[in-house]
């Protein structure tokens, strides 16, 4: 009986499983396989991986702590370090402010608009928004009397990565805001009523009620944001192409450049495997939390 049930289950999942095997599992295995070969089809073991980790385009700590390039992998980490907290803080702030205030649908929509803007469009927007001739941001700094920032931001390694991170915050903060708004609706109002009766200040309420009660929402945002930051490609490709001087390059873009532009598919695949393994770390925690939510609380 048990065996029959398993067979029928298998039949039911086959239509869904076949495309997954064909278009997901097979390319992954194939990519992994290619990463052990050089351009001439000779088996080179881990040489492509070693080459990746010693490549200055991937890790270039010599420049640190001066301005970029630090290498594609470090740029991804810089993105996580700055983009993640900004997304969480701004997402939560907007969620709290816009949930309480009436008639804020338009503002909420404007913030969420970043989520629906295609990344390529976002990339092109960076070029215009931060352009010395036509951009709002450099002109703002000119008015503020900071001439060193009245430049074409994407043309200088000192400012290009900052410009991209800034625009990516707008592109992604809508997601955090929506998740937090959904999370806020699940907090029973009685907690706030009791806090008000006890004379709790707004900051105390935020610290002791809102933030702890939004822990699950925060976990989801953190994990999704890290995954988003690690697989960034189109925003950088469309705005700076990784330049100037490799100062905005990221792993996904370097994978593409190496495999297709530099004609080195083996190393390109090695970069892809490394990127996948790094991305699996937050995914592991995400899956573990989903399967065993009690352990987290």
């Amino acid at each position: 009986m048990k065996k029959k049930l398993r067979m029928s289950t298998l039949w039911f999942i086959t239509p869904a499983l076949l495309p997954v095997l064909l278009f997901l599992v097979f390319p992954i295995i194939s990519g992994l396989f290619i990463s052990f070969f050089d351009n001439h089809g000779t088996f080179v073991g881990l040489a492509n991986y070693l080459d990746t980790f010693t490549d200055k385009r991937i890790i270039n700590l010599k420049q640190f702590p001066s301005y970029p390039p630090y290498g594609a992998l470090i740029h991804n980490l810089v993105w996580v370090i700055f983009h993640l907290p900004l997304t969480i803080i701004l997402g939560l702030t907007f969620a709290i402010l816009l949930k309480k205030t009436r008639g804020m649908t338009v503002v909420r929509t404007m913030i969420f608009l970043g989520m629906v803007v295609p990344m390529v469009v976002g990339g092109i927007m960076v070029r215009f928004l931060f352009s010395k001739n036509s951009g709002l941001i450099p002109h703002l700094f000119r008015i503020l009397g900071i001439p060193s920032l009245y430049v074409n931001w994407t043309a200088h390694p000192q400012t290009a990565l900052i410009a991209l991170i800034a625009i990516s915050v707008w592109l992604w903060v809508g997601y955090a805001m929506v998740v937090y708004i959904a999370g806020l609706t699940t907090i029973p109002t009685v907690f706030y009523d009791v806090a008000a009766l006890e004379g709790s200040s707004s900051m105390q309420t935020l610290k002791w009620i809102t933030i702890p009660m939004l822990k699950n929402s925060t976990s989801v945002i953190v994990l999704m944001t890290i995954i988003w930051e690690l697989k960034l490609f189109d925003l950088v490709y469309a705005s700076t192409g990784g330049g100037p001087g490799n100062s905005t390059n990221v792993m996904a873009l370097e994978m593409y450049l190496t495999a297709f532009k530099f004609n080195n598919p083996g190393k390109g695949m090695a970069i892809a495997v490394i990127l996948t393994l790094i991305t699996l770390i937050p995914i592991f925690f995400s899956v573990r939390q989903t399967l065993n939510p009690q352990s987290e609380s």
Partner: peptide
């Protein structure tokens, strides 16, 4: 072409910056 083309496009801007 190839890697050289991408690299020269990318690197030369640095001279203007520094």
């Amino acid at each position: 072409g190839g890697k050289f083309q991408s690299v020269i496009w990318d690197q030369m801007g640095l001279l203007w910056s520094d």
